[in-house]
């Protein structure tokens, strides 16, 4: 132990002390080096061995004292209900993640579409066309949503072929595709604001981590608490639908209302940004200034300045 070759040493009793004919504790010494953080691993392994050995010794004493044929002891009949948590994570959460994955794989399409116009300097030509800027953003977003919808349909078809159990596939598909709306909207905001691919890439990474958290965390909470809460996210709703569970009104109203609100706000903001020449062509104003202008606080400040 001094050289660090071992973290723990177990000293078993001598043959004289180890006599199972008498019912007395069997002394065992465990030397643990507290300098090493792996001490708890050693202790855990020793306890596991202790439990196994104890069980054998106990059984020997019990059989000696009360032979099994002479005594009947109460039997334990265990019944479990529900699907084990690890299985639920695999069957439900992983299935849901696979269904929603296409929505995150195509973020680059909208970035390419909007930021690419700035990088390739084709933004001016596009704006000069007889198409309003809002239609440009909506048109680009629609193209990406349709691509995501086709991909989601293909993946769902392949999953069903592979043996995944997805009840109400039509409704599940609708939930997945409608979730694409705010995701593309939020990506459009980042793409409209970003000067280049690098910025957009980093912004999307952060945004997607937050979006994935928003989708997955309520789903995990639902799995561990089982049906006590309405579907806070569309992923939770999708899990309930493809598992064939009964839905309450709240299960449908809450996620779809939040989807609608976020979609409206995000497209409004991305169109508002894209309509600004300083955002499209530069020099781009700071984030705080944009925030003040968007919320109307800059007008209030200017009024007080006057």
């Amino acid at each position: 132990m001094e050289g660090g070759d071992v973290t723990g040493v177990v000293l078993l009793p001598s043959a004289d002390d180890f006599n199972l004919e008498e019912i007395k504790p069997v002394p065992v010494k465990l030397y643990i080096d507290y300098k090493d953080p792996k001490r708890s691993v050693i202790k855990d392994e020793v306890v596991t061995a202790q439990n196994r050995a104890s069980s054998l010794i106990s059984q020997r004493w019990i059989d000696d004292l009360t032979p099994p044929e002479e005594v009947s002891q109460p039997e334990i009949q265990e019944e479990t209900q529900g699907e084990a948590l690890p299985l639920q994570l695999i069957n439900k959460v992983m299935t849901a993640i696979l269904l929603f994955l296409p929505l995150f794989l195509f973020g680059n399409l909208i970035v390419d579409s909007i930021v690419g116009e700035k990088e390739r300097k084709t933004g001016e030509i596009l704006i000069a066309m007889p198409v309003s800027r809002s239609n440009i953003i909506l048109g680009k977003s629609m193209a990406v949503i349709i691509t995501m919808a086709l991909q989601a349909a293909l993946w769902m078809f392949l999953m069903i072929l592979a043996g995944y159990s997805i009840e109400n596939p039509g409704l599940v598909y609708l939930i997945v595709v409608t979730t694409a709306l705010p995701i593309v909207g939020l990506t459009s905001i980042i793409a409209a604001f970003s000067k280049n691919y690098k910025e957009a890439g980093i912004g999307i990474t952060f945004a997607y981590v937050a979006i994935i958290g928003f989708l997955i965390v309520p789903a995990l909470a639902y799995i561990s608490q089982q049906g006590r809460y309405v579907s806070a996210s569309t992923m939770t709703l999708a899990i309930k639908v493809f598992s064939g569970e009964t839905l309450s009104r709240g299960d449908i109203i809450v996620p779809f209302t939040s989807l609608l609100l976020i979609s409206l706000i995000s497209y409004y903001i991305s169109i508002w940004l894209f309509k600004r020449d300083d955002i499209v062509f530069g020099p781009r104003p700071g984030l705080l200034r944009l925030l003040f202008e968007f919320t109307g606080l800059s007008k209030v400040l200017n009024y007080f300045k006057k």
Binding site: M1, P25, V26, P27, V28, K29, L30, Y31, I32, D33, Y34, K35, K43, V46, V47, Q50, A53, S54, I57, S58, W61
Partner: peptide
């Protein structure tokens, strides 16, 4: 609990 483990802490 037949095994009485006496833990001796070193260092």
């Amino acid at each position: 609990n037949p095994l009485d483990i006496n833990e001796i802490e070193i260092n």
